[in-house]
């Protein structure tokens, strides 16, 4: 099969074989061109190392079934280090900026099956960065906290063990939930079936319950009057 890989000086064509793209890359590296750089780890879709773009869509190389004509590129919105390897430093730093963690250690909070299932999907995230790569918001705002960090925030604020959800919601007002365009691109590429778009909508609802509003909407005019009629 012919595949094309984006390298420093443009696309290079290779004769490739393998069940998955990762297998093909491994064979190319071992037998054809050892200078080809890419990342991999578990080979089983759980470590998040090998996300790349194939034919314009983010996939895990280890989970992508190789097709003739595949065009392989590094992730977007992140600096390219070499060939398919990108730096995830800034992307991962969004977790800290978004305070995507439980505020403090807690003791003996009892969780039910329903409580657990509330964020079971969000905690399936493998931090592969696919959602970050596909997100169009970065074209206009590089400081956007982004899909995976916001999904992670929802994971923690929807957990009964979080003692200070208000602070978390406050943190994601700037460059956060309101900057998302709800385009749903993140949902379509997530290898774990997570919808950050849906998670961001839930975070918006929580923000609204705490009295926060969409700043762009507020700027649109004067917001709503006391009687609920729009003021322009």
């Amino acid at each position: 099969m012919k595949i094309s890989i984006k390298r420093k000086d443009g696309f290079v064509s290779y004769e490739a074989e393998g069940r998955t793209l990762l297998e093909a890359l491994n064979r190319l590296k071992a037998n054809v061109d050892a200078t080809l750089a890419y990342s991999s780890g578990c080979r089983s879709s759980v470590c998040g190392s090998c996300a790349v773009r194939v034919n314009g869509k983010e996939v895990l190389a280890c989970a992508h079934q190789l097709q003739n004509g595949d065009v392989v590129e590094p992730l977007h919105n992140v600096p390219i280090l070499r060939d398919l390897v990108v730096s995830m430093d800034k992307a991962y730093a969004m977790n800290a900026k978004a305070k995507a963690y439980q505020s403090s250690f807690v003791k003996e909070v009892v969780l039910s099956v329903e409580d657990e299932q509330r964020n079971a999907l969000q905690s399936d995230c493998i931090l592969c960065g696919s959602c970050y790569s596909t997100c169009p918001v970065y074209a206009v705002n590089e400081e956007f906290l982004g899909p995976f960090a916001l999904t992670r925030v929802l994971r923690y604020v929807s957990d009964k063990r979080e003692q200070n959800p208000k602070e978390k919601i406050e943190t994601i007002q700037a460059n956060g939930v309101w900057d998302c365009t709800l385009c749903n691109a993140c949902t379509l590429v997530c290898p774990q079936g997570i919808s950050s778009k849906a998670d961001i909508e839930k975070l918006r609802a929580r923000s609204a319950m705490l009295g926060y509003t969409d700043p762009s909407f507020a700027n649109f005019g004067g917001g709503f009057g006391f009687d609920g009629s729009p003021q322009f």
């Binding site: 003791k107 009892v110 099956v113 957990d159």
Partner: peptide
């Protein structure tokens, strides 16, 4: 208890354990 306390989302039994 420590892992539970830092937020590991363990599966639960019907009685919340």
């Amino acid at each position: 208890a420590w892992l539970d306390g830092i937020g590991v989302p363990f599966s639960r039994t019907k009685d919340g354990k």
